[in-house]
Structures are given as structure tokens and as C-alpha cells.
Design a protein around this nucleic acid. Structure first.
Lengths: 135, 135
DNA sequence: GTTCATACTTACCTTTTTGTACGTACTTAC
DNA sequence: GTAAGTACGTACAAAAAGGTAAGTATGAAC
């Protein structure tokens, strides 16, 4: 359409054909981060170590099952560290690994942008003239 | 646990209790951006205006239904602009609004981080010792 | 005149994700 | 002795998301 588009056709491909293509492992990671609770857990842990129940109370709406599952996925990805103290009642602490902290900061930027610009967005939704069937 | 955590308990709440609480509209927006195709479409459109079929070819794996649905949601949010030329065969162009471009850049940062750090992540997955039941 | 391309919509079905309710094991508080 | 708190696992159910295949309208190429 325009020559700008034409000229970086190759560089586009080089720089980031990856996520666009199915099969790429980054799509999987992105899913872990962008599913219902993944991102929220990461951002919550940016504020420091939390126990399981602390997180549950903080993320209003998570079920125990989902929180456990989310934490396990993030742990398996190497983003979250789990430390369990063998006492009764159980005491388990979750924190970010250095890798996880970097990721979490990116997620936080995105979430922050949305929160900060929420008024603009809500306004744009009004004036877009396009109806959202659901929600 | 630590006093750092204690001391910003209040400021945490002030600054970003929002997404953590259910009910907040930002959660909805976040969903539009983080579902299977939302983020990818935004990032793709950062490279310029695209026609429907261009996007379809670019995002390997999207069905027409999903692409149409995703675009409509993003349009309703005011992130994407749709311009249709009444010719035959149909010709429709999609591009980012200024608001959408800002968002898309944030998403791109996140996606880029994942792509760039994929080797580190894959490595961390190996050494995490935690198995992922699915995938 | 049959096929192709465009940008969709619709009905229907499958997969994935999320939730609910319960169980466990142990201890402290009432 | 009954309830509550802790950090989960598990079976089952519900909901949401996604996919498939077809249809629509129109004209252009073969």
C-alpha cells in the first residue's frame, strides 16, 4: 500500500516474525503471562514475597485451584520461586526470580498504562460508535 | 514479613488496587489485549495499515471469525480504526488510533522482552525442576 | 459459466479455561 | 469437641474461547 510498508518487509520478518507464527514457544510463554491470573500474580509479587493466602486475598476473585495452578506454571517457567517451610500449619512463600522480576516489570508497565489511561479508553469506547455485543 | 512490605501497604492500595479487584473495567480491557489474538493484532498494526486478509496471512493461525471478532473488539475500545471503501471486491483498511498506538507499544515491549529472553526462559524452565503437566 | 477474491456473518461443535465443592493433615483457639 | 486457618489436590461442572464449514454479495478473469 505505502512504500514504508514495502521497504521493511524483510526487516519485519527478521526482527519479529516469531510470535506471529504459530509454533513459536514465545506464544506459550505469552499465554502464561496473559491468562486470567498470570499477569496479576507477577505484578502482585513485584511488591515482595507473599504467602499463598496473601495472594489469594489480594487478587480478588481467584479460586484456590486457579492460584495454585498459576503459581505452578510460573514456577515451571522460572519466573516464581516457591519456598516451603515444613511447619504446621503449612507456610509457603512465593517470590519473583530475577528473570520473573524483569518480566513482571514489563507486565506492570502495560497494566499501568491501561489503568492510567482508563478514562481516555472509556471515553473512546463511547465515541467509537461500535457496539460490543458482550461484556 | 519485612518492613518494606509493611510500609507501602497503603500506597500500594492507592496506586494500584484497581486491577487487583474484580469489577474494575481495566480488567476487561486487559482481557481484550491479552486474549489469543488481541495483542498480536495490535503489534502487527504498529507496522502500518493492513487489510483484513493481510492481517490474516500475517498472524498465522487466525480464523476469519476470530480476526473479525478481535478487530471489532479493538475498534469498539477505540484502539483500531476501520476504513471501508465501497468497492467490489470489498476493500477495508485497519490501522491504529493514536490511543491504540500507545497501547500497542506497551504490548510490543512485553512481547519483545519475551522473544529476546526466550533462551533464558527456556533455560530456566529446564532448571526449575517443576514439570508442566500440559503443553 | 465456473472459479476466484474480498470481507465478512452465522450456526454448530470442540477445546480450553475457570470455577465449585469437597477432602487432607495438623494445630491452636474457643 | 467443634471451628478455623494453612496450602494444597481432585472430581466434576460450567462457562468461555476458539475453530470449521458454509453462506452472502459482487465483479473480474478464464
Amino acid at each position: 500500500m505505502n512504500n514504508i510498508n514495502q521497504s521493511n518487509k524483510l526487516s519485519e520478518q527478521m526482527m519479529r516474525g516469531e510470535v506471529f507464527s504459530d509454533q513459536c514457544p514465545s506464544r506459550e510463554i505469552l499465554k502464561h503471562v496473559t491468562n486470567r491470573w498470570g499477569g496479576l500474580v507477577l505484578v502482585a509479587l513485584l511488591l515482595g514475597t507473599h504467602r499463598f493466602s496473601d495472594l489469594r486475598r489480594k487478587l480478588s476473585g481467584v479460586s484456590e485451584k486457579m492460584l495454585a495452578q498459576t503459581l505452578q506454571t510460573l514456577e515451571a517457567d522460572g519466573f516464581v520461586m516457591r519456598v516451603s517451610y515444613p511447619v504446621v500449619p503449612p507456610h509457603v512463600e512465593y517470590s519473583l526470580t530475577p528473570l520473573g522480576a524483569e518480566l513482571a516489570k514489563q507486565v506492570e508497565l502495560l497494566v499501568d498504562w491501561i489503568e492510567i489511561n482508563l478514562p481516555r479508553i472509556l471515553d473512546a469506547q463511547q465515541t467509537s460508535g461500535v457496539a460490543n455485543r458482550d461484556e
